[in-house]
Design a protein around this nucleic acid. Structure first.
Lengths: 170, 170
DNA sequence: CCGGAATAGTTGACAGTTCAACTAGGTTCC
DNA sequence: GGAACCTAGTTGAACTGTCAACTATTCCGG
């Protein structure tokens, strides 16, 4: 099968997306770093703050922020050293570990949230129209759902004979 | 000033965006990794392939893929060891270094591109409507442009007194 | 031209992520 | 009730990215 390359317009849109989202994340990360947090850590604080008892099983938390279990272990290690969370062993499952937000962790989130939300607004929400923002939300919801659907039984995506000349690599 | 939190709808859109784009990048990266490349490396190959002589100054290349100069140095080191690019000293500027795509680098790109483009389509372009995709392109173009504009003379974004209670950290 | 400032690129230490291997506690089923 | 298997979480090594410090060259004002 011959490759369906992106049109010039699609390619431009794709590159704008890559660039814009990189700059967006960069800015938000930089903001958070000024108070000693990173984006992934901030998201963990948010998820825990919303959970009953401000506590979640490691695996649930990992799924919720979409990290690997290993990555979460490392991150929680760092956050535990910083006193933001603590580990509690799970009463109902001997294998399980609960991550619980400490008071300090909660305070840190309360400190960080206004700045973070302001950053999200200033660099994103208030930069695009309300309609466009809603469209982005719907579109990426579909992207996430679709990724799950095909994520199951997927072949390694055709090792791909270079059956045609390079046209536009995106 | 009291924080303008995100509405529930905005928050949902924001989280969908975070999740969807994470899954998207994850998939594309995984595809490329099956032939020994990463997203950043792939983008470098593309930029070089499009440049006259398949050659760019390090700094131009860094700006083009939006990496720090340091990051580019490290990445080009790895790619040079892999034989994908080579360094040439710049004739017109004694400080300068040119990165040039090798034949092997070009072949690698020709191999990778069909799979990569197929991945971009399958997980993104063909998942959302053409209109939505165009909207995303325009929106993130604006985000990128705005980030540049405020990136210049920006105060560290108000260290922010926690002047109000936590409502929704995004 | 000479001295200071700016620019190009590299370096090495550190922080964060991934990956594969591992421990340990549950589940199933005969 | 125990063998085989599955799930939860951790570990450590390898890899990637960041940051601040450094070298080398060019630019610019006097």
């Amino acid at each position: 099968m011959t490759t369906r390359w992106l049109t010039a317009t699609q390619q431009k849109a794709w590159r704008s997306y890559l660039l814009g989202s990189a700059k967006l994340m960069e800015r938000l990360d930089r903001d958070l770093r000024s108070i000693g947090l990173s984006m992934p850590e901030y998201e963990i604080l948010v998820r825990l703050s919303e959970a009953p008892e401000r506590t979640l099983r490691m695996t649930e938390l990992a799924q919720s922020v979409h990290h690997s279990r290993s990555r979460l272990t490392h991150t929680i290690n760092r956050m535990e050293s910083a006193g933001l969370v603590e580990r509690v062993s799970c009463p109902s499952d001997g294998r399980g570990v609960l991550a619980r937000l400490t008071a300090k962790g909660y305070d840190t989130l309360v400190d960080a949230a206004p700045m973070h939300v302001a950053g999200v607004r200033e660099t994103f929400v208030d930069v695009v129209s309300a309609d466009d923002f809603a469209t982005i939300g719907r579109a990426f919801e579909a992207v996430a759902a679709h990724a799950d659907r095909i994520g199951q039984n997927r072949q390694p995506s055709t090792p791909a004979a270079a059956d045609d000349a390079l046209e536009s690599g995106c």
